[in-house]
Amino acid sequence: MSAPANSIEISNLATHYGNRQILHNVSLTVGKGEIMVIMGGSGSGKTTLLNHLLGLKKPSSGTVRILGHDIARLSPIALQRLRTRTGVAFQSGALFSSMSVGDNIALPLREHTGLDETTIGIMTRLKLEVVSLAGFEHLKPAELSGGMIKRAALARAIVMDPELLFCDEPSAGLDPVVASSIDDLILRLRDAMGMSIVVVTHDLDSTFKIADRICVLDKGHVLALDTVDAIRSSTDPRIQNLLNRRTEDSEPDAESYLRRLIGGPAHPPPPPSPTRTPRP
């Protein structure tokens, strides 16, 4: 297999929910061994973009190439093989609640490799050590705290030693200490295993700590795509609002405000959202 230069290449991706266009012409590349942080306020299309990267949604137009393969054109078996080379840590963890933590982490190994149980057990405990969860493999996900669930999900995502790792909000809802330990973990994974990592987050501290490059999404458009320093020194007011956690005041429109209050149709001008808080 020829080694592609980039782990992810998205070109001109557009997507719709019904008639509403969610992503507009998104293009993005992630190089090998790079940590790309996709950032944006709530409703900016981060999650939708991630779902496209994972192949869970079909784009209206545009292509998504993962590790050199156009995922819309792969045969099912090739897609299955590609998916064993990527790992995903979901926002909620998405651990299988009927299985113990150890079984959760061992599942990809059991399903995709012919390894014997002893080896699988060793590899599972190895990954649990990596995320500092050693000794917890017999617990059920319901018995874990939020931070432990995120770390267990991360362990499951890396158990196949993927070349590409996706993390959806790895530090959301965690206290600063645990969040920072997850950031360290992500950096360590990249440095130790050379993974390319895509992190979707709106946590600024962790973004600046781990990112090589940042992609700022806003209302489905790529607002900026640059290195951490360049984003920090950006003069774009929307980016500055996002970075400085300022609320965004839209110009008041009395007419459409009244129309919304009486529950009438909100056109002709689509109502501007009154405030945007980048961080809850």
């Binding site: 994972l54 869970l56 590609l82 998916r83 064993t84 995903v88 609640s97 599942l107 399903e111």
Partner: peptide, 19 residues
């Protein structure tokens, strides 16, 4: 069970694992 797995993204998790 399937409904709960769906809203917990467990089904998505299976899909992206290639299962």
């Amino acid at each position: 069970r399937l409904g709960t797995m769906r809203i917990n993204q467990e089904i998505d998790a299976l899909t992206v694992m290639g299962i």
